[in-house]
Write a protein that binds this DNA or RNA. Structure first.
Lengths: 343, 343
DNA sequence: CGAGCGGATGTGAACGTACACATCCGAGGG
DNA sequence: CCCTCGGATGTGTACGTTCACATCCGCTCG
């Protein structure tokens, strides 16, 4: 009955506005506005009166009105795929925290598939909210087409690099990470190394594969066609069962930790000892990786760091700052017990 | 130079508004408004002209102006913890999709700790955006205090039940799930069963523990004090190492799959065979659980279903529908290879 | 002692839309 | 043949805020 929101009688209780506050504080509405935007030219005494009135009424500034008059939505859009995965989820969490601290809202949109239509729909939904900036998490190749087709006119950053778009990218150096992983296996004496990759329309998958291939070719080792997976443990498992029918390799570099987990499972079922008979390296260092059987050697990415820096970069750009660092974040090889010297 | 957003000259290119569209279409702005809100009383021919003008100008309705005049933000708030985890992340993804399809935006806020201040800050941030409804994902006990303290005056749903708030809850029956898991172990002949629980200020952890204790007491088995963990694989591992110093139990029910993974790791290190020497049950059925060593027996929850239903429920409430189902979603026991009959 | 100045505060307008109401027009009925 | 009616369209206004400018006051300086 005293519910101010759901009551529907004509005498509906209106939320207090700036003029109500002004009346209570005995000042003009403009003074209240100044108090809200901490203008320098307001007497401390007046400020205190306004603050008291705000508390008394439980006043909250109306963000829609603000956005309308300033034409600034204070919203940052996030276009993401696979938010369920550890990496994107961690980055998004860091993005959210950083954005909130800076007084920005976040609007997150998931794309269900990597098809152009799906990407475009997601982007449309975000643009309709007049976002001030855009972050693309875990981008697919086609995202870039959509970005230029739709003439996205706001500053944006993708959390992966294509090389083509380095001015808009911020990334963990995936190629370097893949090289670290591959070199680790080579250093252990492995020469026949398999790569189970992520889907090829994912930029990260592509980069990891490239790093893998380059390192092999630098070491003059035979390269074999990578298997194209879908990031899931299930895929790693079934691919492993299939691959292990021909035991013509002694090490595998998996595109992420989940696929490595599945592959580990396949090895176990086929009676292969890891790392005795087979060395395995993953990618991401999800928190669970340290507890796999055996604990997984993998490449750690600092997802949170990337998220924070994305916001930093965009806010800088909105402020007009220039020359902010796009330097890639370096990944780190974490050696555990799933890799061993080839005997 | 032709960038309509970042240009800062006085002749700044303004985004087209409803009046611009009206002028091009040769109608009044109100007619454009009608076209946008598909009013019945507009001639098809006129509608077509307006549509053409909209396309020509690349017009997009200004949501801030709409929100201001209708005093409807079309935003649903999500308060969440642990968005990085599979369960909450899956629910949120489903929520986002359902909300978008219904024309709503989502505003997600993470709380970093379960302290009251943190919860209140998150809730404040959401309320400041004049959200129309609220979903609390993975709620802590203190959320309810905050909800009533802040007099949250919008429809809300928590994705877990306390029993106290069933009118605002939508949940997987955690107690039932925990009973299923515990009964499974009892049926296998185990009588000394350990429980590694989640943090006690989490409603889900509390519910799972209750289910565990009730099932034990129904079977007239000795209950032992559960270990209070933090959901992580690390905790499961270290707790396992500690607990296994006294091998006075033959089965463990872990509060989630991650802790089960860590416990599995500890068993392996202590030379215990699972399920030979120790049976283990997890909770959640994360996609990786099927590939643990051994594949984990666990309780599956339909996180996506819960997310979808949350939106359905709230939109119904906003529409004024009544009597929508709050019936709990039933969890399902998935028996894999981490449990066996006690010999 | 008055002009000028600057800090504090007030007034008018604008942002882009939807709602309430007014107007217009042609068709149909008395 | 005029009146009425209803569908289609137009006009005024309000939503809550900020920006640009106006005003007021007391003080300093020449």
């Amino acid at each position: 009955m005293s519910d101010p929101v759901r009551s529907s009688d004509p005498e509906r209780v209106r939320a207090p506005n700036i003029r109500d506050v002004a009346r209570v504080a005995g000042v003009s509405y403009q003074t209240v506005s100044r108090a809200l935007n901490d203008s320098p030219s307001i007497r401390p005494e007046t400020l205190a009166r306004v603050r008291a009135a705000i508390d008394e009424l439980g006043y909250r500034p109306n963000q829609a009105a603000r956005a309308l008059v300033t034409s600034r939505s204070r919203t940052i859009g996030v276009l993401s795929a696979q938010t369920v995965h550890y990496g994107p989820a961690t980055s998004i969490q860091a993005i959210e925290t950083a954005a909130r601290e800076a007084g920005y809202r976040l609007s997150i949109t998931n794309i269900s598939s990597s098809e152009y239509a799906s990407i475009k729909a997601g982007l449309d939904h975000l643009m309709a909210q007049s976002i001030e900036a855009l972050i693309v998490v875990a981008p697919q190749v086609r995202v870039f087409e959509a970005l230029s087709d739709l003439q996205v006119a706001v500053p944006f950053v993708t959390l992966e690099a294509t090389g083509l778009n380095s001015a808009h990218s911020l990334w963990v150096d995936q190629i370097q990470g893949a090289r670290l992983a591959t070199r680790h296996l080579i250093d252990l004496g492995h020469t026949e190394i398999m790569h189970i990759s992520g889907p090829q329309d994912w930029i990260e998958a592509e980069a990891r594969m490239q790093g893998f291939l380059r390192e092999l070719s630098d070491a003059d080792l035979r390269t074999r066609a990578p298997i194209l997976g879908d990031w899931t443990a299930h895929f790693g498992y079934y691919a492993g069962l299939e691959l292990l029918r021909y035991r013509d390799f002694t090490a595998a570099f998996c595109g992420n930790d989940q696929m490595a987990l599945g592959f580990l499972h396949a090895c176990r079922e086929e009676g292969l000892s890891v790392p005795g008979d087979m060395s395995i390296v993953g990618f991401d260092d999800i928190p669970e990786a340290a507890h796999f059987a055996p604990p997984l050697t993998t490449v750690r990415q600092n997802f949170a760091e990337i998220g924070r820096r994305a916001i930093e970069l965009l806010l800088g750009e909105l402020r007009g700052d220039t020359e902010l660092s796009h330097a890639p974040v370096q990944p780190e090889l974490i050696v555990r017990q799933s890799t061993a010297r080839l005997v």
